[in-house]
Design a protein around this nucleic acid. Structure first.
Length: 235
DNA sequence: GCATTAATTGGTC
DNA sequence: GACCAATTAATGC
């Protein structure tokens, strides 16, 4: 069992890390837990009572809602340093989303009551959390518009570009192993449509694949295709 | 290596 | 553009 220590943590984008001095001085670090998860671990269940706030120490996670017909809608992905389950505290008593690891992941965990105390005692942390919320809300509003207005091809391209922005590429392949279905669940279509768009993009020499792995050949052309239809990136 | 799961393609509504 | 079926490829055990 590997323990995630804030002192040696490299996640400069982590809200805890950014306020580590105050958090440590107030003695809150004692209450932080570390959770080691294997791939496909469903650590937040939609409808389950909220028990705390998670941070990704190392790994990758998908956050999703389950629809009526057993369909999943992936809301976002999270990597090292990012918050999971932030919608749980405050208003609701139950989680409105599920979260599952997409590879072996180490999570940091604060319970709700500890988090409340932290927010009350450390204004800088509260400010950071608020900024994070504002960005999240903006993202989610943009996504609604995209879903309504984009064609399937644009949605798939947009999803792949998002995945590239979030996880990046090494050796010409994306740094995540996502199934076509997961891409579809994020883009808001079906896996067949994703496969069709990917194979035509392959013919156009914009993408390349190797088994499940996907690589972007020409990022600029993909971006251009989205931009031409007046959609904005980075959301 | 076999058995399950995922990717792909073609067809229908 | 979603849903279904059949084939093939990949992966887990």
């Amino acid at each position: 069992m590997q323990k995630a220590e804030c002192e040696t943590c490299k996640n400069e984008n982590c809200l805890v890390k950014q306020n580590i001095k105050e958090i440590k001085e107030a003695g809150f670090l004692e209450y932080k837990h570390t959770i080691n998860c294997k791939k496909s671990r469903n650590f937040i269940l939609e409808g389950a009572p909220v028990h705390g706030l998670f941070f990704v120490y190392k790994g990758k996670v998908k956050v999703y809602k389950t629809g009526i017909n057993g369909r999943e809608q992936i809301v976002r992905f999270a990597k090292d340093g990012e918050i999971i389950g932030h919608r749980g505290f405050g208003a609701g008593q139950f989680y409105q989303v599920s979260a599952e690891t997409i590879e072996d992941t180490i999570l940091c965990d604060f319970t709700n009551s500890i988090l409340m105390e932290m927010l009350q005692k450390i204004p800088a942390l509260t400010f950071n959390v608020m900024t994070f919320y504002a960005e999240e809300l903006n993202r989610s509003e943009t996504k609604v518009r995209k879903f309504a207005q984009m064609t399937v091809r644009e949605k798939v391209i947009d999803a792949i570009l998002y995945i590239n922005r979030k996880f990046g590429q090494t050796n010409d392949f994306l740094n995540v192993r996502l199934s076509r279905k997961e891409i579809a669940d994020f883009a808001g279509t079906t896996d067949e449509q994703v496969i069709r768009v990917i194979s035509s993009l392959k013919k156009e020499k914009l993408l390349h694949t190797e088994g499940k792995k996907i690589g972007i050949t020409d990022v600029e052309k993909l971006k251009k295709e989205i931009a031409e239809h007046n959609f904005f990136l980075n959301s």
